[in-house]
């Protein structure tokens, strides 16, 4: 694949505090995510994975290095331009607090498009299409508390990918879900990536990170390891498929 990466983290470091209270949360980490790619980040608490995700999403600025989204460096952007890029290019899926409780599923999904100036009618059409893509057309007019946890997470994924956005940053999206529902969410993320989205996923569950094309291990703020699915099979997997 020679497609330009949707996300590029170049030697990004993050330091908090000053002098004696100085803490390095991330040491020069580099990674990129291409269209169609799902990259999982694993690591213990405090390993720097949330910091990495925040830098990737422009929610925090790196102390050193740079982050590029759709080829655009975040470093040179004004606050306003950064907010616009976040809104137009990046979708976020978190463990919880994903949806606005007073808006229906369709309204939640349409919200970022309306904020961006799309007409309400057009945004709703896009939202319904996005819901259909995640197999949830029937919940369009339900409020979050009328949906199951799994449905809410699927709606959040639909919202993350509405409009021209194709980068999803997911922070423990299966965290609050049971094993089966969590797998449904991972299957959906995988399917959206197979359809061309790029996703950077933080999860502590090995089983869920295994849906990724690459798994990156963070330890003490540094990438210590990386795996792909190309390892020699321990079993006759050809026969399983």
């Amino acid at each position: 694949m020679t497609a330009n990466p949707v996300l590029e983290v170049r030697n990004a470091g993050k330091v908090y505090g000053v002098d004696e209270t100085l803490v390095t949360a991330l040491h020069g980490a580099s990674l990129s995510v291409a269209p169609g790619e799902l990259v999982a980040v694993r690591g213990a608490s405090g390993s720097g994975k949330s910091t990495l995700l925040h830098l990737a999403g422009g929610l925090d600025a790196p102390s050193t290095g740079d982050v590029l989204v759709e080829g655009q460096s975040l470093a040179g952007l004004s606050r306003k331009d950064l907010a616009r890029l976040r809104r137009r290019s990046i979708g976020y899926v978190f463990q919880d607090l994903n949806l606005v409780p007073s808006l229906t599923a369709a309204e939640n999904i349409a919200l970022p498009r309306e904020l961006d100036g799309t007409s309400a009618a057009e945004a709703r059409t896009e939202a319904l299409a996005a819901l259909a893509e995640v197999g949830l057309r029937e919940v369009a007019d339900r409020f979050p508390d009328e949906m199951s946890g799994g449905q809410q997470q699927r709606v959040a994924i639909a919202r993350a990918l509405i409009g021209p956005r194709r980068l999803v940053l997911a922070d423990e999206p299966t965290g609050a879900l049971d094993s089966e529902t969590g797998e449904g969410v991972m299957r959906l993320l995988r399917a959206r990536c197979d359809a061309g989205a790029a996703c950077l996923l933080v999860t502590h569950e090995p089983r869920h990170s295994a849906w990724a094309d690459r798994v990156v291990f963070l330890s003490d703020g540094a990438i210590v390891d990386e795996t792909t699915a190309d390892a020699p099979a321990v079993l006759d997997l050809g026969a399983l498929t």
Binding site: W211, F217, D225, A231, L237
Partner: peptide, 22 residues
Amino acid sequence: VQAQRRQAMSSLQSLTRAKASV
């Protein structure tokens, strides 16, 4: 530990791919 985990994680990824097609 890391070499072993690399191997195990890759196996897990391969198995997950296999499962997606069942």
